[in-house]
Amino acid sequence: MNLTLIVLLMLAAGYFIGKRSEKRHYQSIIVREKELSGLPAIASRMPPEDAMYQQHLVQGNIVVASDYFKSFLGELIKLFGGPVVPYEALLDRGRREALLRMKAAALEQQAQFVFNVKFETTTIGEGWLRSVEVLAYGTALSPKGSVNNATLV
């Protein structure tokens, strides 16, 4: 009976605290996405040929942990199948945050574009301690002369 009570408390804590932290994270993401919208992150491998650019590898990564409620619901959904709804927001936040961090790294190089942008995802930990790492990386293009020690395209 005590175990059931602990599980219920953990579920309630995971649900309310996880929901609050997710909401705050999304608010922060939306604000920063608007701020960094002037720096395009492009999937294409073909950079513009109108000018000379210096190129740098830039990356941004984040490790996001699932809360107790999400992990529990994820396990429950696995019994029946279907979209694992609780992990959708987790991965969405991870991808957007990693992209924002990559853009922040590119801005430090005074980049005008980031080309060849890719994502990598890795799970870290086992069982209930599992987290997901999302890495976004690409080639930042900065106008010639803005940064030292970079390769010219």
Binding site: Y15, E33, S37, D50, L73, P86, L91
Partner: peptide, 23 residues
């Protein structure tokens, strides 16, 4: 060529279903 990242509407990659209700 003009490059830009248009901000997509929110909620495209996240279901709008209530996790509590599904649970």
């Amino acid at each position: 060529v003009h490059y830009e990242n248009r901000l997509p509407p929110e909620g495209i990659n996240v279901s709008r279903k209530s996790a509590g209700r599904i649970f």
